[in-house]
Nucleic acid binder design. Structure first.
Lengths: 204, 204, 204, 204
DNA sequence: GATGAATGAGGGTTCATTCAT
DNA sequence: TATGAATGAACCCTCATTCAT
């Protein structure tokens, strides 16, 4: 962690600037010049630190996700109870510092590039895998094995769905509403799996 | 409906070509030249029918959504039972002809433009409003009033979430899985609202 | 003059529309589409009547000048006195219906094309020749022979200079000021040529 | 004057290239590509130094006029006699290096843009103001106060008129003719104002 | 005669990227 | 390390012009 050489600082500044420009300008509007200006640097320096525009935004995506990932990890580290761990994951995703229209815009812009950027796709895959892993390990203690994967996917899809919603229209969802509704979903599914374990199993 | 003049045909061809190019090239890569070539026309004619690139893709979005909208409407027209209507809406969204990776790509690309394109935002709003309206009217007969809106939003967020998933990674979800999981969600929520009506009410 | 067939009417409408669009849009901005729209016609029809854009604006220049030419001719027809004929020419050029900023704009735009449009150059030459002829014939009776040409050129240059001025800045000159100043010039030159005939001759 | 950095040199080269291309191609024909080629540079670099085409030609106009302005200033600096100062202004405007058909063409093209380019209009206004100022200050010592402004405007209009003439037709005027005729005008007006001071006053 | 569909050339402008300093 | 000059490719868009109807 002592690796904060000058160059590392510069790189981080640029990653952040890239993500911030992305928030308000979209991928097409996020030119290297604007990113440089936003970081208070010259245009040339951006490509001194990143091989090309694509690489810059790949790093920006990692950077942007690192915060959320760290928050989840921190919460989980002090949350042993399975059900509470599910809530922890959900709540982190809707903390005010993450769940903001502009951030959702930027995230959407990056998602839209995924099909044509293998690295971006890989990053996205890692992010999803981590979330799945967190959810699955907790769900195993809460629902029958055959319901675990489906529910884990459902929860993360629902999280993404709310993020998309906020990205499409500021004010259309509040983080609290999202958290509450997703928790209701989780509880209902847990209850259902207990009340009708056979039905659930048959449904698959 | 007799308005299928030559010009209307051309416009539809171009809208579709635009959407198809969008599927594989993304918004930035979907140049007017490629769209024109894909429609077997010259570049000039595209802007003869659409004022600019933006307008073209706005119409492409409407076109792309019209099919899904019509499918939903047709199913609902012959489905009186409330619970079945919910299923109808869900199932339409995951019909094989709609729920395809490339279509999800294009949809994602358009979503990413929404924050910077007021018309696109309006179209998106209308689409969401229609879905909400369909869901809400059916849910009123199934869950307590105070749970209706939240559940309707949850269902559509979940639908969007699965679309996003497929857009991000082909093969990561099947339409059948999505339908099944969303229906489990609906059933669980209906059950929960019956089993613990007070709790649900207090939760709000 | 009975030649006003339908086609002649259309042609005149288009010439005038062309000149009017030229007034506010300049040569680059005066597209065939705008001219057509201004004349309440379709774009195609313009090139049905005029071989190409260039020809249209050549005719527009003729049309625009015809009014001034006719006004001068009419005044001269009833003005026998030489000095009065000079005044007549001057005054016509500054009649309120001709001496207007927008008309001067259009005239300037056409002048700017003269170096690259032989026909326009010829039209301009004819216009200047007619003015010279009118002035010279009157001046012969007022100043020594060797001063005639120079003064005629001076008068028309002065007229053009005031037109240019109005074209460059609306409100910078009034027609009355121009007429008065040019007449002072003419009078002063006539007086001078009488007072110092030799000096004038030597000056050449 | 030590500011001749590399960038300043480039900018000047481009301004000059722009003006030279303008001379033979007119505003519409003076494309950025031609300007770049004429300066031996790439098209991209032009817009690296000037925000857009309009700005380039605004600077070209300033550049083109700077020479004439400097020549006038230099002459005036060593010419105390009022009448001689008038002549100095006139003569500078018709020096062979300035009074050339191609230069008049370019000047005309720029004038034609003035109505639709506020900056160009401002530049033109400054140029005219400077000329007026030079003439007025000298004329105050030569003619009655009430004749000063009108005569100053007349002189500059006459200068512009001859420029226009040369722009419209190469060979139609010589600089010497123009200088002689304008000086005759000035002398005649001075004489007239002495001979008939009252008449002049009344004429206003 | 009249319309507007269709073309294709070309222009201005933007930008990622390279390179010399 | 850092700058910004320079390039060249592309893109959107405009328009004169042609043509089928």
């Amino acid at each position: 962690m002592k690796l904060t050489r000058l160059s590392d600082i510069r790189r981080r500044e640029l990653r952040r600037a890239a993500f911030e420009v992305l928030q308000e300008q979209g991928m097409a509007g996020a030119t290297l010049e604007k990113v440089a200006a936003h970081a208070g640097a010259s245009k040339g320096i951006v490509l001194h630190y990143f091989r090309n525009k694509q690489e810059l935004f790949e790093h920006a995506m990692r950077e942007a996700n690192a915060g959320l990932g760290a928050a989840v990890a921190a919460r989980l580290a002090r949350t042993p109870d399975p059900r509470a761990r599910i809530s922890a994951v959900i709540e982190c995703n809707f903390e005010p510092r993450f769940f903001q229209p502009s951030i959702c815009h930027a995230w959407l812009s990056l998602c839209a590039e995924v099909p044509r950027d293998a690295t971006l796709a890989r990053i996205q895959r890692v992010i999803h895998a981590r979330m799945r892993s967190n959810l699955v390990s907790a769900l195993r203690a809460l629902v029958p094995p055959e319901a675990v994967e489906g529910l884990a996917l459902g929860i993360s899809a629902l999280i993404d769905g709310y993020w998309l919603r906020l990205g499409l229209r500021a004010g259309s969802v509040t983080g609290d509403d999202a958290v509450r509704q997703i928790n209701l979903y989780v509880d209902a599914m847990i209850d259902a799996s207990r009340a009708r374990p056979v039905a659930t199993a048959l449904a698959r």
